[in-house]
Structure formats: C-alpha cells, structure tokens
C-alpha cells in the first residue's frame, strides 16, 4: 500500500511538470504583444520596447520558462503587470473565495443529490424516479450563467431580498460566513454553482444504489431477516465510496469552472481573476492562476484515487 502511494505520488511529478509547461506555453500561443493592453493605446514602439525589457519579456522563451519555474517552485509567481501586486497574494485570496463557493456548492449538491438519488435508485422506474431523473437532467443541461442572471433579476432586482453582486458590505476582507449580512451574498452563487453537481451526483447515486440492490448480497441480507431499512443502509454504505469519488471530482471541476458564475456575481475568486487576466493579458496572473487550479485538480484526483484504493484494494492497478 505504502509503495503504491509513493509510486502514485512520484507519478504526479512528471504530470505536474507537463502541466507547468502547458500553462507557460498557453500564454505564448497568443498573437500580438503581451504588454499591449497594459500600455496607453498610443504608446510608441520605443516605449513598449523599454517596458518589455523591464519586465523580462525580451529574453528567449525557454529562458523565461526556466526562470519562471524556478521562482514558482519557491512559491513566487511574480508580480501582476496590471496591479503590480504579488500574484501569490491575489491568487491565494481569490482561491479561498472560490473554495468557499465550490465547497458550499458541492456540500449542498451532495446532501440534496444523495437523498434524491437514493430514493430514485431504490424505486427505479417509479414516478419519483422519473421526477428525480428529470431534475438531474435539467441540472446538467441548464446553462448556469443564464440561470444566474435569471436568479439575480428575481431575487435581487424584483424581490430585493438578496444582493446582486459582491461578497459583502465591506468586501471579502471582513467576510464572516456566519453573519446574515455576509451569508446572503453567497446564497445565489452557491445555488447556481450547485446545479451541475446536483445533476451528476444524483445520477451516480441512483445508478449505484440500483446496481447494488441487484447484487446477490442484498438477497442474502434479506434472507437473513434484516428489515428493509437496514438493507438500505447496507446498500448506501456500499454506494458511498463511488459517490464520494464523483463528489470530489465535481469539487475539482468547480474550482476551475466557476469563471462564468463568478463573472456575473462579481465574486472575487479565481474565475473572476482569470477573466480579468485574460482581458488584460496579465501574463504572470494568467500563468499562476491556471497552474494552481490545474494542480488543485491533480491533487484532488490523487486524493480520490488513494482513498478509493484504501477502501477497495482490488482497484489497485499498475
């Protein structure tokens, strides 16, 4: 087991290196000058050259990559060209804000979806099952940015009960999740983001439960005289690992996929940071944000994998 864990961790290193190369290269496949939007529209060629040199963009790209990687390994992602602040400072703050949304959305999705999925899987083919399946399909099919806009119009503009934007009356610096004044800001974004995980986790739970119910041991349990609720408990316990794995994956997806929802709610997370960095072509911020989000995804996958192996050693493959 330990050997497997070590092998799995070692295996993550070349992946991480590959990811860092992709992150770095992404920015350079773009046409045009990396500094253009940061300078006045009528900046002269000579001025641009001067600034390019000052930021190190005049060096050959492999050299830039080596320098960048060396710094990244020490936790230094450079400074944002636009704001002049350390990328790590902006990034980790944004990361915390996005984790709040992603974790909230996944938690809500899990509690709702696991209940719905279990019910649907237990009574496959029933009306309840059809309803739940319908909800799940809508969840994965609805464009969530569109839903966000509709929710803002209903709850912020027309009913005026929830805020339309932002993270609190004084921003994220004094954010206190447990006070209503702040908590109300997370309701709409979390609800919007939870739609896709609700759909996916419901479907996974449903098929897991239905499948487990068909297995021989369930009959054995019933034959032993267990009451139906106890049987169901066994079934749930059997389905849980796979559902949790899917939930973990969804968390990873939300961390990297909240860009649209964050943009609409002006939520100061990584998606918002990324969108801003794309618009202004702020290279250090772009590279750092994509890298860290991808690494979180890699790490999430790794943890899920190890947990699953721990629960079920049969899954261990070369």
């Amino acid at each position: 087991m330990t050997a497997y864990i070590i092998r799995r961790l070692l295996y993550a290193i070349p992946i991480a290196l590959g990811v860092s190369m992709v992150c770095f290269a992404l920015v350079y496949i773009a046409p045009g000058d990396p500094l253009q939007t940061l300078l006045p529209e009528d900046a002269s060629a000579e001025t641009i050259e001067m600034v390019k040199k000052a930021y190190g963009f005049d060096k050959p790209i492999p050299v830039q990559y080596a320098l960048w990687l060396g710094k990244v390994l020490t936790g230094d992602f450079g400074n944002s060209i636009a704001s002049g602040r350390a990328v790590s400072e902006e990034l980790f703050k944004a990361l915390a804000n996005t984790i709040l949304l992603a974790a909230g959305a996944v938690a809500i999705a899990f509690s709702l979806a696991f209940a719905m999925g279990t019910v649907a899987g237990y009574w496959v083919g029933s009306k309840v099952d059809r309803f739940v399946t319908g909800v799940a399909v809508v969840g994965v099919s609805i464009p969530n940015y569109w839903l966000a806009i509709v929710l803002v119009i209903i709850f912020a503009v027309e009913l005026n009960v929830l805020p339309a934007t932002g993270m609190g009356p004084r921003g994220s610096d004094t954010f206190e999740l447990l006070t209503w004044d702040h908590f109300r800001h997370v309701i709409l974004p979390i609800f919007t983001l939870s739609m896709i995980p609700i759909g996916i986790i419901t479907r996974t739970t449903r098929s897991c439960v239905a499948e487990t119910l068909n297995q021989d041991f369930v009959e054995t349990l019933r034959a032993k005289g267990l009451v139906e609720s106890q049987v169901l408990l066994h079934v749930i316990r059997n389905s849980l690992p796979q559902v949790l794995a899917v939930m973990g994956l969804q968390f990873g997806y939300l961390m990297g996929g909240s860009i649209l929802v964050e943009t609409i709610f002006t939520w100061p997370g990584t998606g918002f940071l990324l969108n801003k960095a794309i618009l202004t072509r702020d290279i250090p911020v772009l590279q750092g944000t994509i890298l860290v989000l991808a690494m979180i995804f890699v790490a999430t996958n790794l943890v899920i994998d190890l947990c699953q192996t721990a629960i079920d050693p049969r899954l261990k493959r070369s």
Partner: peptide, 24 residues
Amino acid sequence: MRIMDVFYAFPSILLAVAISGAMG
C-alpha cells in the same frame, strides 16, 4: 497516455477558457 494525462489534469472549462483566451 502520459501526454493525455497532462491535459487531463486541467478541468475542462478552465482549459477551454485558457486556450480560447490565449488564441482570441
């Protein structure tokens, strides 16, 4: 498969946004 693993390491929307954002 190792090359695929590298790209698999990106959440899909993030990668799509990053590529489109870079290429315009």
